[in-house]
């Protein structure tokens, strides 16, 4: 029994790292966008389009890193579109986000058809535990470099929000547009750039899906992870560091089903696979009434105003 438990835990650790990586990127992107005062629900579409374009680019060029860049640039395009549309008067950011979610997934499905069959090169992974000789552990700790990039990005964002002009300008814009305007900060431009940069991160997260784990392109690839990442930002109370913790939690929940399957527990497989969605629901219920979340929320967000 304890051997089984060890296997499940090892598999969940590996799964948490793998599954959490796209969550980290999307959540960081959304944090950046929301800190500037807008909500981009379109990141689900960005994630899927990033996955598809990343896969296609890696297949065509033979370089998975070119695919990551392509995924990010797709995110920049969608993010900038969201930012520009929302800069028009009386345009609601949530409605635009939903429209772009549909646009992103639609574009990806349309152009992605020819890439479902072919095999694109995968991103390399860093073997952290091969030296132990434990096969399961070595397998679990083959970590994709993007995971480390994500953690580094989170640390850099947390630092930048406190210690750089850009960081303070983004926070100012997100908390009080009136104050920002009085300082001569071009509010709309800051928001467009923040949404585009957030889109880049989400697109990179998408390329991870198709180029590392699960590691192929198909239409059911994301299954709503982009939307869950938005919930995760609220749970993480707009802190990049807490985003990483929350993403790991979601990742572990997502890894529960496959981990149990690996030791032969097949009963309720789909139920366990639903764990991240259940977690999302619980978190939304918990945090929507949370006083702390209310206090930490940027003042300009349309949900808090």
């Amino acid at each position: 029994m304890s051997a089984h438990l060890a296997i499940v835990l090892t598999a969940m650790l590996g799964g948490a790292i793998r599954v959490s990586t796209p969550f980290i990127f999307v959540a960081l992107g959304e944090t950046l966008t929301e800190k500037s005062g807008r909500i981009n629900l379109g990141l689900e579409g960005t994630l899927v389009l990033g996955a598809m374009l990343g896969y296609a680019t890696a297949y065509e060029t033979g370089s998975p890193w070119a695919g990551v860049l392509a995924g990010g640039l797709a995110g920049v395009a969608l993010g900038a579109l969201h930012g520009l549309l929302c800069s028009l008067p009386r345009v609601n950011d949530i409605a635009v986000g939903i429209a772009l979610m549909t646009l992103g997934t639609g574009l990806a499905f349309f152009f992605g058809k020819p890439f479902i069959q072919p095999e694109a090169p995968h991103l390399p992974s860093v073997p952290l535990a091969d030296w132990t000789g434990d096969h399961a552990l070595a397998e679990a700790l083959r970590v994709n470099p993007l995971f480390f990039v994500g953690i580094a990005t989170a640390l850099a964002m947390a630092w930048a929000f406190r210690n750089t002009r850009v960081g303070l300008v983004v926070r100012t814009t997100g908390d009080s547009a009136a104050a920002a305007l009085a300082m001569g900060i071009p509010v709309d431009r800051v928001r467009v750039l923040a949404t585009a940069a957030g889109g880049f991160l989400a697109g990179v997260g998408g390329s991870f899906l198709s180029l590392s784990y699960p590691g192929s392109w198909n239409e059911g690839l994301s299954s709503g992870q982009g939307l869950m990442a938005v919930a995760l930002v609220i749970f993480a109370r707009w802190s990049p560091i807490r985003c990483v913790g929350a993403a790991l939690l979601f990742g572990a929940a997502g890894a529960l089903g496959p981990a149990l399957q690996s030791v032969g527990v097949t009963q309720g497989y789909y139920l366990f696979n639903a764990a991240p969605y259940v977690l999302t629901l619980l978190i939304m219920v918990g945090s929507s009434s949370s006083v702390d979340a209310h206090r930490a929320a940027p003042g300009e967000l349309s949900i808090t105003r």
Partner: peptide, 17 residues
């Protein structure tokens, strides 16, 4: 009405202005 940014500290408000 105040033109300070509520979530920033006093020092951050002064410096960013």
């Amino acid at each position: 009405h105040f033109t300070l940014v509520p979530s920033l500290t006093g020092a951050e408000n002064l410096v960013i202005s």
